[in-house]
């Protein structure tokens, strides 16, 4: 793949949180910046800019990705879901168990956690803690995140 010079603008259409959007971006713009600065969806955070911390996790065609490692042109005609599509009532266990402290990692943690919750069969082959390993949290020590996800999964199972 050849990468266009950075002043080359490209038009990109994609589905964002269920709605079709059109943006005109530089060929090297990161999805993270398009979301945050062009589309003004600042819920997705930048923690490291190199795919290590997971603060910018969004779902791309249903799979968690780091929005700092995706060029915007790569999401053309694809489906992107960000934290803005999530309502607080979906996260009651995360609230009650203390899964957020400073809140900087939380949007990414929540996107990964909800992906796991929506695909509980993942847990037959993967440990929950391994599935969460791509999201760094410096405050909680992870226990509250794991407990809230487990609680959330067991409620889901009961229903």
């Amino acid at each position: 793949m050849t990468i266009a010079p950075e002043n080359n603008m490209v038009d990109v259409s994609f589905t964002l949180n269920g709605k079709l959007v059109d943006v005109s971006v530089s060929a090297t713009d990161r999805l993270l910046d398009t979301l945050r600065y062009d589309l003004r969806l600042a819920g997705t955070k930048e923690g490291c800019g190199e795919g290590e911390c997971g603060a910018c996790t969004v779902l791309l065609d249903g799979l968690p990705v780091n929005a700092c490692l995706i060029f915007t042109f790569q999401v053309r005609n694809r489906e992107v879901q960000t934290i803005e599509s999530i309502d607080a009532h979906e996260l009651e266990e995360f609230h009650s168990e203390g899964a957020t402290q400073c809140g900087a990692c939380s949007p990414g943690v929540v996107m990964t956690a909800l992906w796991i919750r929506n695909h509980p069969s993942l847990l037959q082959t993967h440990q929950l803690s391994r599935l969460m390993a791509g999201n760094l949290c410096r405050c909680t020590g992870y226990d509250a995140i794991v407990k809230s996800l487990e609680a959330s999964l067991s409620i889901q199972e009961r229903n």
Binding site: A42, T44, K45, I86, P107
Partner: peptide
């Protein structure tokens, strides 16, 4: 008492400095 600002943090609504409008 549960954390008072937890919902806005969990849903990405909490406003950090780089989340302010940048026009």
């Amino acid at each position: 008492m549960l954390r008072v600002e937890a919902r806005s943090k969990l849903t990405g609504r909490e406003v950090f400095i780089d989340d302010l409008p940048a026009e």
